[in-house]
């Protein structure tokens, strides 16, 4: 079958899609966007998290056909997505230009080790910060509880989200 969808703001078409394929498979293997990760392919680990019409979902659990006509944001489009939200208010400067604040914060806080969970965590954390710009630690833990990380013990991920929230609120005031 043919699937038409918008990915990271760009209309995309995938042909010869087998009906059993997931959105994750179409993104990774047909549309050249392997940033969304395939750690469990059963909706338990969150490494394939994307925004589907603005809602974070496990793309491994979305049949490709269900994405027909819809908007998808993957980690590859996260910087643009966050930039549009910030409205180009100069929130991105210096060495971090081209990265969403949450992406830069993950690098700076040491929240990336093997990095396989990172894309899904970034999409989930960015979406939480959009809803809740000043989260408590428990808010962060609740929002990211669907994303497994095996390397970090999550402490640096907590640091990164706190850092991104703090930088976002500084940017907002400035």
């Amino acid at each position: 079958m043919r699937v038409n969808l918008t990915v990271n703001g760009r209309p995309q078409q995938a042909d010869d899609v087998w009906e059993g394929e997931s959105l994750l498979y179409v993104l990774r293997e047909r549309l050249g966007l392997p940033g969304s990760k395939n750690a469990c392919e059963q909706g338990e680990c969150g490494s394939c998290t994307v925004l589907l019409d603005g809602v974070p979902v496990c793309s491994c659990l979305v049949a490709a056909g269900q994405a027909e006509g819809r908007e998808v944001v993957t980690v590859e489009g996260l910087a643009d997505h966050a930039g549009r939200r910030a409205g180009g208010t100069g929130a991105r400067t210096g060495e971090g230009a081209g990265l969403a604040p949450i992406q830069q914060a993950f690098i700076d806080a040491g929240a990336v080790q093997c990095g396989f969970c990172t894309p899904g965590l970034l999409v989930a954390a960015d979406e939480m910060l959009e809803r809740n710009p000043d989260p408590t630690d428990e808010d962060i833990r609740e929002a990211l509880s669907g994303n497994l990380c095996r390397c970090t013990g999550y402490e640096k991920i907590m640091d990164a989200v706190r850092l991104a929230a703090a930088r976002q609120s500084e940017g907002g005031r400035a």
């Binding site: 966007l33 940033g35 969304s36 590859e76 992406q103 830069q104 690098i107 990336v112 990095g115 894309p119």
Partner: peptide
């Protein structure tokens, strides 16, 4: 780090 946070 940058490659890992951009999905590249």
């Amino acid at each position: 780090g940058t490659l890992k946070v951009t999905g590249e």
